[in-house]
Computed example of a mutant assay.
Amino acid sequence: MKNLLSIEHISNEQIATILNRASELEAGAPSQLDQSYNVANLFFEPSTRTKTSFEMAERKIGVTVIPFETGFSSTLKGESLYDTVKTLESIGLDAVVIRHKMDAYYEELLEGINLSVINAGDGAGQHPSQSLLDLYTIQKEFGRFKGLNITIAGDVSHSRVAKSDAYALRSLGANVNFVCPKEWQGEFEAHQSWDDLIETSDVIMLLRVQHERHEGNANFSKENYHAQYGLTSEREKQMKDGAIIMHPAPVNRGVEIDSTLVECERSRIFDQVSNGVFIRMAILETILKGRM
């Protein structure tokens, strides 16, 4: 596997291999890379978890991280993404990790680029590494996907996480439902209330309300959203025994979820962050070994 661009591009068998390798790495297994590699992280959108997680993963498996700051790059002078990546390839990089505001930005890189590309999020398109760490979190909890009931709540139409997770989870045999305002459901069919879902869900996965996309919308308020679609303390009490709470973060406390629930016993929100390091170690190994 030379690139990781979309969760839709990898098979269930490849997913299983990455999840299993992440488990080995978490247990202390040494890196399988037997030569040096150079990688740069190109983040054209703000990021805390994904960017830092990839940097940590790169260092843990012995990869040389070549600094790249988008705010000081020639993209500010009008250089295309293709030319930027081609330049880094010519300098000697083996792979780049890219987050970009453009949907499917990687399509312009597929012809003529020989280094590996790992998609760290494209617009409202895909977020494959987040999807893999979510799968890893669920697998660690339940040991399976088939037959699990997963409810994803929030700004589905704008969420690359929702799209990636829904595809992967359904492919692996989970039942996936959505809860959100009708105008936020995008390509998916969604419920407009928690009725019949809160008590039967094994996983409640909350999505960040993207306030920047709803500015000026007189029909939207944080308070109303929290009351109708958020995970309140009252709703948490209705969740089944053993059910867990997830969120890709950043979290709007008091909007998607009561602040008191962010670190409650059911919550796996910060576990997802920890799991992301091991998943990204496994992704990097898989991609870089695929170049050999």
Rank of each mutant, 00 (worst) to 15 (best):
L288V: 01
E79K: 04
I152V: 10
M56L: 12
S47Y: 13
Q139F: 13
M281H: 10
F188G: 08
N114P: 02
S53M: 00
V117K: 00
D202P: 02
S73P: 01
K182A: 15
M205R: 07
Q139S: 13
D122A: 11
M292K: 15
A168R: 06
E265K: 13
F43R: 00
F178V: 04
M1S: 01
R99K: 01
Q35K: 15
F278M: 08
G242A: 08
S193F: 13
L172P: 00
A22V: 10
F72Y: 03
S74N: 11
G186T: 07
G62R: 11
Y82G: 00
L148R: 13
V255P: 09
L169R: 05
M102E: 15
L109T: 12
M205W: 02
E108F: 02
T70G: 10
G78E: 10
V39I: 14
T50P: 00
M246I: 06
N252I: 08
E13S: 12
L4M: 09
Y136V: 01
V273K: 02
A218Q: 14
G71T: 14
N175R: 12
G28D: 04
R253K: 11
E199G: 04
I113R: 03
I138Y: 03
A153P: 00
L109R: 06
C264T: 07
D202S: 11
M292F: 01
K140S: 05
I98E: 10
R235D: 09
S11I: 12
I287F: 03
H158I: 01
S6I: 04
Q238H: 11
G173T: 06
A29H: 08
P248R: 01
A168N: 06
Q192D: 14
K289F: 01
P128R: 09
A124N: 13
T75R: 02
A190D: 08
S171M: 13
G230T: 10
K60Q: 14
Y82S: 00
H100M: 05
V97C: 04
K51H: 13
G143A: 05
S221N: 09
I204M: 14
L261G: 05
G147T: 11
I283Q: 07
R291Q: 15
L110V: 11
R266M: 09
I10G: 02
K146T: 07
I15C: 07
V97R: 01
F43M: 00
H127D: 04
S164Q: 00
V255C: 12
V273D: 08
A16E: 14
H191N: 10
L206G: 03
E199V: 07
H214S: 11
S259C: 03
Q185E: 15
A162S: 11
E189S: 14
E8S: 14
H158M: 02
A243L: 04
Y229H: 09
F220D: 10
R59G: 06
V117H: 05
F270A: 08
M56C: 07
F68R: 09
G147C: 12
K77R: 11
A22T: 10
F270S: 14
G242R: 07
A190Q: 07
